[in-house]
């Protein structure tokens, strides 16, 4: 039986939602999965709403369309809840993960009657505490991995550490902070 997980990312241009989708594809690939990571391209501008996608599967992924019925939705910027129908097609057995200091109960009324699981992550607080700066990608990645259970958490941490070591070879001081952001998110997200 084909196990396919489809994830849709909503962010604003410049916030790194596309990078996060590509990073998730990278780390899922490293754990042996078949992956797709792709953004929806339009007239890209800083601050404009953008969408990116992931398909993660134990078998080859052949379909090349956007994702209309995602298992999970990640909202990197909570101001998008007002302007974008982020829960469109989202399966109720799945979940939406929103970057916000608010609670899930406070966010749910903004989700147009979505019945599934609502998870909130205060990526700003985690990022500032762990890194001293606001980079929402690491917390949002850890949150989607934890909520979806698409891969073993320790395996995810190991792969991310290897990836950070490669990516930040010229500034190793940020590796620990990023790893802490991932671990703090794992501890905070239910």
């Amino acid at each position: 039986m084909k196990q396919l997980t489809e994830i849709r990312w909503h962010g604003r241009g410049g916030q790194g939602a596309k990078t996060a989708a590509l990073l998730l594809a990278d780390v899922a690939f490293s754990t042996g999965m078949y992956v797709q990571g792709f953004p929806e391209y339009g007239p890209e501008r800083m601050g404009a709403p953008i969408t990116a996608y992931n398909r993660l599967s134990d078998q080859e992924v052949r379909v090349h369309s956007n994702i209309y019925y995602p298992d999970y939705v990640v909202v990197v910027d909570e101001t998008l809840l007002e302007s974008v129908d982020v829960t469109a097609g989202l399966k109720k057995e799945g979940a939406i993960i929103v970057n916000t200091p608010k609670s899930a109960d406070e966010i749910r009324p903004l989700l147009k009657g979505y019945e599934g699981k609502v998870v909130t992550v205060d990526a700003r607080k985690i990022s500032v505490e762990a890194l001293g700066r606001y980079f929402p990608n690491s917390p949002m990645l850890a949150a989607v991995v934890k909520v979806s259970g698409i891969m073993d958490e320790q395996k995810f941490l190991d792969e991310m550490e290897a990836s950070y070591k490669h990516k930040f070879a010229h500034k190793p001081q940020v590796i620990e902070g990023n790893m802490n952001a991932l671990k703090m998110t794992f501890a905070e997200v239910e």
Binding site: Q36, G37, F38, E60, H64
Partner: peptide
């Protein structure tokens, strides 16, 4: 190859 769909999409 198809623009963006395969050119910019990351896949195995």
């Amino acid at each position: 190859q198809d623009g963006f769909i395969t050119s910019h999409g990351v896949q195995n």
